[in-house]
């Protein structure tokens, strides 16, 4: 295990020598070293593997009680055996969708700016800034979203719902935009606002994946494009974007996974509802993680079991998205270089 030695290839002038058998004997210390390394690897594997198991073990009671209803009931009343994750899963997906729709153009812009447009001196600082933003705690985003954004976004939400109400998801059925005395709280605490805040939270991670793949676009191909007379944008479209497509898709999916798991910022902004709310501009939203944060405090053992089952569903959903993301990234040219 220690050394990999190629057997000497018989040269043209040397008589054919039988290949020597190379065997490496690991010393005692090395054997201990390997055992402990394997121990660490297995420990990590066991911790990660048992997450799903424990959630299932704790959630089994609720799942057995609820049966298939768990998937489609729009309510959360475990004490009266009437609960399901339909609302929260749809709510999670809606918030994540809004977040991705806002975050992807922004992240693409920042990534392209850093890799293609920014002056060299600025580049390092900008990369650091984006990385730093990925480390800003979600509770800070939640504070900003609740105390600043949710007020400022009302005119935009009103504009969108009154002029683009025919677009699916954007309409609000019983809103009356022409009434000057309209109650504006209908536009507050919505999926839309939560989505914008989550978008800013996932933007840095999407951006750094995209930037990695953009900067790896081969310099020969870039200069080839320029030599053929391409403008800078022509070069980007012909070389950088096709090369980085895997990074763009993979980064977006990673961001989607993050967006689905976000808890505190969403919890602070939305006002929870237990009916599927497809009108994203209307007050009232929900997500799996904020449901858990909301209900776990006063939960009886059975209710806790139901929350564990909901957590298991979230866990499975993010795992699928993340595996998809890494598969997409690994399959592309830019992904294979890392």
């Amino acid at each position: 295990m220690t050394t990999v030695v190629m057997a000497p290839v018989p040269g043209p002038d040397s008589p054919a020598e039988p290949a020597r058998k190379v065997r490496s004997v690991a010393g005692g210390a090395d054997r201990v070293f390997h055992l402990s390394l394997r121990g660490a690897g297995l420990t990590v594997l066991i911790i990660m593997g048992t997450i799903g198991l424990f959630l299932f073990y704790r959630g089994a009671q609720a799942l057995a009680d609820d049966g298939p209803k768990f998937l489609y009931v729009q309510a959360w009343e475990p004490s009266s055996h009437n609960f399901g994750i339909a609302t929260v899963i749809v709510g999670t997906l809606l918030i994540a969708m809004v977040a991705v729709i806002f975050a992807v153009p922004l992240a693409t812009g920042v990534a392209l700016y850093i890799s293609e447009y920014a002056p060299r001196k600025l580049r390092r600082g900008l990369i650091n800034l984006v990385d730093l933003m990925a480390a800003v705690p979600s509770v800070v985003f939640g504070l900003w979203g609740f105390y600043f954004l949710s007020e400022k976004v009302i005119p935009l939400a009103k504009f969108l719902s009154s002029h683009f109400g025919w677009v699916p998801f954007l309409g609000i059925r019983d809103a009356d935009p022409n009434n000057p005395l309209e109650d504006l709280t209908i536009y507050k605490s919505s999926t839309f606002i939560a989505g914008i805040v989550v978008a800013l939270m996932i933007m840095p991670i999407i951006c750094s994946v995209m930037r990695e793949s953009f900067t790896q676009a081969p310099i020969g191909e870039r200069e080839g494009a320029y030599a053929l007379g391409a403008t800078r944008w022509g070069m980007i479209r012909a070389v950088v974007l096709p090369f980085g497509r895997g990074g763009m898709i993979g980064g977006t999916m990673l961001g989607l996974g993050r967006a689905m798991g976000e808890t505190i910022a969403v919890y602070m902004i939305i006002s929870p509802t237990f009916k599927i709310q497809p009108e994203i501009l209307r007050s009232g939203a929900n997500s799996v993680s904020s449901l858990i944060a909301l209900k776990f405090g006063a939960a009886s053992p059975f209710e806790l079991s139901a929350l564990m089952a909901a957590g298991l569903a979230l866990f499975a959903l993010t795992l699928v998205v993340n595996f998809g993301a890494s598969a997409v990234i690994a399959r592309t040219r830019s992904g294979q270089m890392t």
């Binding site: 997450i51 959630l55 798991g261 808890t263 858990i292 944060a293 979230l314 993340n322």
Partner: peptide, 13 residues
């Protein structure tokens, strides 16, 4: 796959 583990799931675990 676990790098994007939702933090609330870590707490639940």
């Amino acid at each position: 796959a676990m790098t994007a583990l939702p933090s609330i799931v870590a707490g639940l675990f």
